[in-house]
Amino acid sequence: MPLHVPPAPAPALRTVLTALGSPTAVREARTPSLLHAQGPLTPEVPLPVHILDRFTPAGASSTRLAGWRFLIRCGERAVAAADTMLTPDGWAFSRFFEGPYIASTERALRQAETMSQSYQPRLLSVPGLYMLTLWLHGDCTEDGATGHPAATDILVPLAPAPPGIAPHRPHRVAELLPVLTHRVTPAPLLGSPA
């Protein structure tokens, strides 16, 4: 089924286009793939980036929108990504970067396109585990900037994933969230041996 990529805020896209058009921004990004790209660079596949930074004792999570990520395509593949963030003055370009999450995101998106159900793709970051997942949200009509993972949504860990969590293996939120909660929750302190 096709993925329903949510539209990014127009000002966020404009900031990325402006940065791509700036030789200084591209040069200072320290992304060799952008510096050596042969052909036009285009921002595509805008994905809202949500942060999962709080777990409750029941395991339920709290998420917040951190920004929008655009894959920067040159020819047939993504060579880098651009992040934007919301500031008090509106959307602003944050950074260009490259690395393993670019190819891993593309792979997970291709994998999601073969699923039988339609989804809205998003990114879900779990900073406490240094983990990034492709979040496949079941409600394709919802604003990509809002919402929380539903129990039936799918999370696809991107590579590199934390030890013991297989990258590119889809999990229902109801299955993976308890594992993440257990890993993020600190162990209780034991009393001193007397």
Score class of each variant (00 low, 15 high):
75 G>R: 12
141 T>R: 09
100 P>D: 14
141 T>L: 03
75 G>Q: 01
140 C>S: 09
79 V>C: 07
96 F>Y: 10
71 L>R: 00
70 F>G: 03
67 G>M: 00
125 S>G: 12
152 T>A: 08
106 E>T: 11
147 G>P: 03
109 L>M: 11
135 W>L: 07
133 T>F: 00
140 C>W: 00
106 E>L: 09
146 T>H: 12
137 H>P: 10
66 A>S: 07
128 G>V: 06
106 E>Q: 14
125 S>D: 14
117 Q>D: 05
63 T>D: 11
77 R>Y: 10
157 P>D: 11
75 G>L: 11
131 M>K: 02
112 A>S: 12
78 A>E: 08
73 R>F: 12
69 R>W: 03
154 I>A: 09
79 V>H: 09
124 L>P: 05
117 Q>L: 08
71 L>F: 04
63 T>M: 10
74 C>M: 14
130 Y>E: 10
62 S>Q: 15
100 P>L: 11
104 S>C: 14
149 P>E: 01
81 A>W: 05
65 L>G: 14
77 R>V: 07
76 E>F: 02
138 G>C: 09
114 T>W: 13
151 A>Y: 06
109 L>C: 02
132 L>T: 04
97 F>E: 09
68 W>C: 06
144 G>M: 08
156 V>P: 10
108 A>F: 09
128 G>P: 01
130 Y>F: 13
157 P>F: 01
138 G>Q: 09
134 L>R: 10
95 R>Y: 12
92 A>Q: 14
83 D>N: 15
145 A>L: 06
90 G>H: 12
89 D>N: 11
73 R>G: 05
152 T>G: 00
99 G>Y: 13
91 W>I: 13
88 P>A: 12
146 T>C: 15
87 T>F: 02
61 S>P: 01
79 V>N: 01
157 P>Q: 08
146 T>N: 12
102 I>E: 10
108 A>Y: 05
151 A>P: 03
132 L>F: 08
131 M>G: 08
107 R>S: 15
66 A>M: 07
